[in-house]
Computed example of a mutant assay.
Amino acid sequence: MCLSMPAKVIEIDEQRRTAKVDYLGSQLQVGIELLEKVETGQFVLVHAGEAIQLINEEEAIQSIRYWKELTQG
């Protein structure tokens, strides 16, 4: 089973094709090569260190809420 997590893009490095994202309060550097256009403030699904899909904010927030419920009991 594969699992991807929503994260908010907070900074983009166009030259290296990476983005700094916020995932549940942690900042991670992820690849954005698989996406055509990514902008600061957007939400992406991250799997294995790569942003694999854009996701709208409402879906991202709902997914994060469900994840918190599962992990925090």
Rank of each mutant, 00 (worst) to 15 (best):
L54A: 03
Q29F: 00
N56I: 02
E57V: 05
Q15G: 00
E58Q: 14
E58T: 15
F43T: 01
L45E: 00
I61T: 12
S4T: 05
N56Q: 04
S26Q: 15
T71H: 11
W67Y: 14
I64W: 08
L35Q: 05
G41H: 09
I32R: 04
D13Q: 05
P6L: 01
E11N: 10
L3G: 10
V9N: 06
E57A: 13
E14L: 06
Q53N: 13
L28E: 13
A60M: 12
I52Y: 06
L28D: 06
T18I: 15
S26G: 02
L34W: 03
H47T: 03
K68S: 09
I10F: 03
I64Y: 09
Q15M: 06
L24H: 12
I32W: 08
I32P: 00
V9P: 02
V46I: 02
E36F: 01
Q27K: 15
Y66P: 00
D22F: 01
Q42Y: 05
I52N: 03
A60E: 10
V9Y: 04
V38A: 05
L34A: 07
L34D: 08
D13E: 09
G41R: 08
Q53C: 07
V9T: 03
G49T: 02
E36C: 00
E39M: 12
D13P: 12
I12M: 13
L28W: 15
I12K: 13
L70I: 05
L34C: 04
E33N: 04
I64A: 10
K68D: 03
G31S: 15
K68E: 10
A51C: 04
V38T: 07
E11L: 10
C2S: 14
E14R: 14
Q42P: 07
E50C: 04
I32E: 04
K20E: 06
Q27N: 11
Q27T: 10
V38R: 11
R16D: 12
Q29E: 10
I64R: 07
G73Q: 11
D13I: 08
I61K: 15
Q42G: 09
V30S: 10
